[in-house]
Simulated assay, not measured.
Amino acid sequence: MSAAAEAIRPPRDGTLGRLSDFLWRRPGLFLLLMLTPPLLWLGIIYVGSLFALLLQSFFSIDEFSGLIRHEFTLKTYAELLRPSNFDIIVRTVSMAAVVTLAAGVIALPIAYYAARYARGRWKAAFYLAVMLPLWSSYLVKVYAWKLILAKEGILNWLFAKLHLTWALEALLAIPVIGGNSLSVSYIGTFLVFVYVWLPFMILPMQAALERVPGNLIEASADLGAGTGQTFRHVVFPLALPGIIAGSIFTFSLTLGDYIIPQIVGSSRLFIGQAVYAHQGTAGNIPLAAAFTVVPIVIMGFYLWVAKRQGAFDAL
Score class of each variant (00 low, 15 high):
1 M>P: 11
2 S>W: 00
4 A>C: 00
6 E>G: 10
6 E>L: 03
11 P>V: 06
13 D>K: 13
13 D>M: 07
14 G>M: 04
20 S>L: 09
20 S>F: 04
23 L>Y: 09
23 L>F: 13
25 R>F: 03
27 P>K: 05
30 F>R: 15
32 L>F: 13
35 L>W: 02
38 P>I: 03
40 L>I: 06
40 L>A: 10
41 W>Q: 05
43 G>C: 02
43 G>Y: 04
45 I>E: 12
48 G>C: 09
48 G>W: 07
54 L>D: 10
58 F>E: 01
62 D>G: 13
66 G>D: 08
68 I>N: 05
69 R>T: 15
71 E>P: 02
82 R>S: 14
83 P>A: 08
84 S>T: 12
89 I>E: 06
91 R>I: 00
94 S>K: 11
97 A>G: 10
100 T>L: 06
103 A>Y: 05
103 A>L: 03
109 P>F: 06
109 P>D: 09
112 Y>T: 13
119 R>N: 08
120 G>T: 02
123 K>L: 15
125 A>P: 01
126 F>S: 07
127 Y>S: 12
135 W>Y: 06
141 K>M: 07
147 L>D: 11
148 I>Q: 08
150 A>V: 00
151 K>N: 11
153 G>E: 03
154 I>Q: 11
155 L>A: 05
158 L>Y: 11
165 T>M: 13
167 A>K: 01
169 E>M: 05
169 E>K: 14
172 L>K: 02
176 V>Y: 13
181 S>M: 00
182 L>E: 01
184 V>F: 05
186 Y>M: 12
187 I>M: 10
191 L>T: 02
194 V>N: 07
196 V>C: 03
197 W>I: 12
199 P>G: 10
199 P>Y: 08
203 L>I: 14
203 L>F: 02
205 M>S: 11
207 A>E: 11
209 L>A: 07
212 V>W: 02
213 P>F: 01
214 G>S: 14
218 E>M: 07
219 A>W: 06
224 G>M: 10
229 Q>P: 00
229 Q>F: 08
232 R>M: 11
232 R>I: 09
234 V>H: 05
237 P>C: 10
241 P>K: 07
242 G>N: 01
243 I>C: 12
244 I>E: 02
245 A>M: 12
252 S>H: 10
261 P>N: 07
267 S>N: 13
270 F>P: 03
270 F>K: 02
273 Q>D: 03
274 A>D: 03
277 A>D: 11
279 Q>V: 12
281 T>G: 00
283 G>T: 07
285 I>F: 12
286 P>E: 07
288 A>K: 07
288 A>Q: 06
292 T>N: 15
305 V>G: 10
310 G>A: 10
